[in-house]
Design a protein around this nucleic acid. Structure first.
Lengths: 217, 217
DNA sequence: CGATAGGTTGACGGTTCTCAAGGGAGGTGG
DNA sequence: CCACCTCCCTTGAGAACCGTCAACCTATCG
């Protein structure tokens, strides 16, 4: 990082608010609430979701340590989704109005924010691409793996904090199907499953599966 | 619009570059090319897509007049996807480095950009939510309708510039299925189909179908 | 008028959803 | 420490949905 003068850096530090811990099941924010801050996950896993007209849950994604939540709330000035802690969660909360004010005086911060927002666009499309359940699951596991790896955690061994139903909901499949697919991957010695702990035995085979993608031309 | 001083407004105007017309099939940008500018569609329809390892096309979306393309390229500084004109397309091209430079001196412009980027997040998830083909098609037609309507075009009568295959690809279904679903909707008098022209006869029934399981925030 | 790309229709088979029932694992209270 | 409860997960069987294959039809254009 360069281009930050000391005063601005100090100001940035002042904006950060350490909040939590939230415990499993606690809401971090709810859909419809006025937007005021984004937050970086420091520890734990956050699930974002919306409830449709029938009260059914629609999982939008999971946020791991180091990732930012609330970015989709800038537009509209209200949170468009709920965020709930799946286990014990700590956050760094940052007032968005103050952050963007600071960004006007700190071009590198502004650029960082543009980049952060841009990166978020189309992330959901990655999983939607594969239409076979096995491919989506493989892509999901690799995605989680890569995201943990990027933050310094093990790439081949991690804990899925969420339930099978939540995974299934996110991947648009029935919970039973999620269970069966994991069983199959486990039987094929591609992964090792112990409750919610996953060990990737053959990541390259997962990658192959995820890429099977026979999109209709 | 308020808060823009005349000098800044003039500068903003200077950044805008009218380009085109592009003709059907012409590329506006290609995946991997260095990112330099975003663009607003002035006329025509743009398809964005990526090619997977096997060369198969993966349609990410369609951009209608008034909508902005290239926002997902800020992060990475390269276009992550291709953009091609589906018919005769005119664009307003805006140098992004210069735009963001201007934004540091124009807080309202910066806010506008943040909002624009934020709005783009999760747009793809809207259609992925519905897992039945009929629901996805209904959601798609309503989405196109709403987007045309917002820009002053007819909400109930519009031209799908893209082919059935492109729609099907975008909606993750076989072209044959797209054809059959449209046929069924047409038989049920919910829509009227004439080639690529669509007339919504009962938008409320479409909304009902799309909401079967879905939840657009 | 033929060529080509796009679109439709039918039959069939496979994947996945639904429904139903049975097994853990963890927590609580006796 | 054990019984029990609850939630989660798994497994099985049947049916529905949708993708694949194949053929035919329809616009558009040179």
């Amino acid at each position: 990082m360069k281009g930050y003068d000391k005063g601005a850096l100090a100001e940035l530090h002042v904006l950060v608010d350490h909040v939590g811990p939230y415990h499993a099941g606690q809401y971090i924010f709810r859909a419809g609430e006025p937007f005021e801050a984004i937050a970086a996950v420091r520890a734990g896993v956050v699930k974002t979701f919306i409830d449709d007209s029938l009260g059914n849950e629609q999982v939008l994604g999971f946020s791991l340590p180091g990732e930012v939540i609330g970015l989709n709330a800038i537009h509209g000035e209200r949170y468009p989704c709920n965020a709930v802690a799946l286990d014990t969660v700590s956050l760094c909360r940052i007032s968005f109005p103050r952050l963007s004010l600071l960004a006007t005086r700190m071009p590198t911060l502004q650029a960082k924010l543009f980049s952060l927002l841009s990166a978020e666009i189309g992330k959901a499309a990655v999983l939607a691409a594969n239409y076979r359940t096995e491919e989506r699951m493989a892509a999901f596991l690799l995605d989680i793996s890569a995201r943990y790896s990027r933050r310094g955690f093990s790439a081949n061994r991690f804990n899925l904090t969420m339930t099978r139903s939540e995974i299934a909901n996110y991947l648009r499949m029935a919970p039973e199907t999620a269970s069966r697919v994991l069983r199959r991957l486990s039987d094929d010695k591609v992964i090792l499953v112990n409750q919610r702990e996953i060990i990737l035995l053959q990541p390259e085979r997962l990658a192959q599966m995820a890429a099977q993608d026979d999109a209709n031309a």
